[in-house]
């Protein structure tokens, strides 16, 4: 099962991607909690792509079975300037209170909510690839 979405930058378009996760994840037999975690992760990936990507984004969803374990694979691709993933902020709950800026949580949430995350970024293309296993722990 492969799904490809070409999404424009319009308000709340990230919900289209979240709805697709719900449908595909449900078809794979994912638990509701796993679907909701993947939905929040794709919303954050879409928000990053809309903020930094400079135009239309492409979402791909598919299933894989590495080592016999079924998983949902989500890719979010944009054509922005790119960034160094190693330099991306890794926020921590301990720095929240009293901190002036409360933004920049997207990648932290994606990494915490998904089972595997890979980011490839070069000028003109950033690809966030995430896996959520069907039998993932909540």
């Amino acid at each position: 099962m492969d799904v490809v979405l070409h999404l424009p930058v319009v308000p709340n378009v990230e919900l289209v991607a979240a709805k697709a996760v719900e449908t595909v994840g449900g078809a794979l037999g994912m638990h509701q909690t796993g679907i909701e975690a993947a939905s929040v992760a794709i919303v954050e990936a879409c928000l990053n792509a809309m903020e930094h990507g400079g135009g239309q984004m492409v979402i791909r969803m598919s299933s894989e079975n590495p080592e016999g374990k079924s998983c949902l694979v989500i890719e979010v691709e944009d054509q922005g300037e790119g960034f160094d993933p190693a330099e991306a902020p890794r926020n921590s709950a301990s720095r929240v209170h009293g901190c002036t800026s409360k933004r920049g949580w997207g990648l932290t949430l994606i990494r915490e909510l998904m089972d595997e995350v890979q980011i490839r970024s070069n000028p003109g293309q950033t690809l966030v690839r995430m896996r959520k296993y069907v039998e993932s722990a909540p």
């Binding site: 919900l15 979240a18 919303v43 928000l47 933004r103 949580w105 949430l109």
Partner: peptide, 8 residues
């Protein structure tokens, strides 16, 4: 469904 901007 929530996002980090709403939670902030």
């Amino acid at each position: 469904i929530i996002n980090s901007i709403g939670v902030s």
